[in-house]
Computed example of a mutant assay.
Amino acid sequence: MRTRFAVIALAGVAALSLAGCNPQGAAMGGGGDATSDEAAAVDAVNIIVPADPGGGWDQTGRAVSTVLTDGDMVGTAAVSNIGGAGGTVGLASLANERDPFTLMVTGLVMVGAVETNAAENRIEDTTPIARLTEEPLVVVVPASSEYETLQDLVDAVVADGQAVTITGGSAGGADHILAGLLLEEAGLDGAGITEKLNYIPNAGGGEAVSLLLGNNAAAGISGVGEFAEYVESGDLRALAVSSDEAAQLLPEVPTMIDEGFDITYTNWRGLLAPGGISEADAAGLIDLVTRMRETEGWQDALETNGWTDAFLTGDEFTSFLDDNITEVSGTLQNIGLIS
């Protein structure tokens, strides 16, 4: 079976540390090995959500804020939405941030967007704090759609090309990559995928739902948590999920493997801090997020949103990011989204 993973650890291969290519010196992975005795006290944080309200990053940022403040772990955890260009506008804002106790939500979407937008500011310029979650994606269509199965939809794209519109998150992000992988499974190469795929990026889950319910898109791709309520209400129909087993929020929906597509693809989300912060400040943030992860409030957030715990911090998260950036860049090239 040829299985695709968005989250990958290259077993047996020593990952190159991102600190080695970081222009801000020890920022990448800073504090990953610091002890709790060396960690700075964190009394308040600012949280940047690099997307408009309503999507998975917004859900993550607000869940972090709620758990931290409700648990009296910090006095304040203000959330700011800075959307645009797959999170790279928010990434640029983080690069100019002077408060070391700033956390920005990140994830697979941003990894792809940095490449497709040739962004000046890169994830390598930040301080990785923690990978928090992973989540399967789901392909949905309006309730009245003629496409009854995932195969029906993919066949239509292959046959009719640009006439079949698919909406998802930013260009080059997880949703876009998954659309490309589905067409690759159907036998198209990079040039063929580029010719056939009519992909409409949107700024968040709310915009995607509006496009679908207004019949301005034939299908949508996003995280299960963003579409689940509309599937349950009957406004949308789910064709398949990208996990290797049934998704918690949509247990009746088949997997892509069930539908004959050799694809398993999960989206991760995590937290970054500004580059160049001290090891003590980075360790303080890692300690704070580690304690948050152990709370009942965070465990409830995982269950409510259908997120899988995928916790990594410090150097382990840095190594994961290095692998993920390499893998996503290769995938984007293979399916014709970057040259």
Rank of each mutant, 00 (worst) to 15 (best):
L183W: 01
D175L: 10
G71Q: 09
N81S: 07
T149K: 12
A15I: 08
E232N: 11
L288A: 02
M73K: 01
D287I: 00
T295M: 00
I257P: 02
A14C: 01
A40P: 01
A179T: 02
G12Q: 09
S145Q: 11
G61L: 09
V253F: 03
N324K: 13
D37P: 01
D300V: 04
E97F: 09
V74W: 08
G54S: 10
A219P: 02
G284Y: 04
V42G: 03
L271T: 01
D315M: 15
P254C: 08
D160Y: 04
Q299L: 13
M104Y: 00
D43N: 10
E124R: 12
Y199D: 13
G336Y: 06
F311L: 07
A240N: 04
Y265N: 01
G75N: 13
R62Q: 12
S339D: 15
E146I: 00
A240P: 01
G204A: 09
D58Y: 06
D70P: 00
R62D: 02
T116W: 05
Q333P: 00
G172D: 13
I166H: 06
L182R: 04
Y199R: 05
E207F: 03
A78I: 02
A310N: 15
F5E: 10
K196M: 04
L10C: 00
T326K: 12
T127C: 09
L150C: 03
A171L: 15
V154L: 08
T60L: 13
S319F: 13
A27S: 15
G180M: 11
V139R: 13
G180C: 08
V139K: 07
G55I: 10
E38Y: 06
L132I: 01
N215S: 14
R4I: 05
T102L: 09
I82C: 07
L249K: 07
L249V: 02
V140C: 12
G284Q: 04
V224E: 07
G90C: 12
I286L: 10
T133W: 08
L178Y: 11
T102S: 09
A171W: 14
D58W: 12
Q333G: 02
G225W: 02
M110V: 06
W307L: 09
L103C: 02
G90T: 00
C21S: 14
G260E: 11
A301K: 14
I8H: 12
S233P: 01
A282I: 08
I193H: 04
G29L: 11
G223E: 15
L250F: 06
G275C: 07
A143R: 13
A310I: 00
I325A: 10
E115Q: 13
T116S: 12
V241D: 00
G180W: 12
D322T: 13
E232F: 08
E195L: 09
R293W: 00
L321I: 15
E296R: 11
I166S: 04
E148D: 13
T76C: 08
A92Y: 06
D189V: 06
L302D: 07
G168V: 02
S170K: 03
A217F: 01
L332F: 01
I129Q: 07
F311R: 00
L137C: 08
M292I: 00
T255R: 07
G107C: 03
A171E: 10
I338T: 05
I177F: 05
A113L: 06
R293A: 10
A39R: 10
T60Q: 05
L108Y: 02
E259M: 08
I48M: 08
G225H: 06
V157L: 08
L132C: 03
L272M: 15
E294W: 00
A273M: 05
L212K: 05
V49K: 07
Y147Q: 04
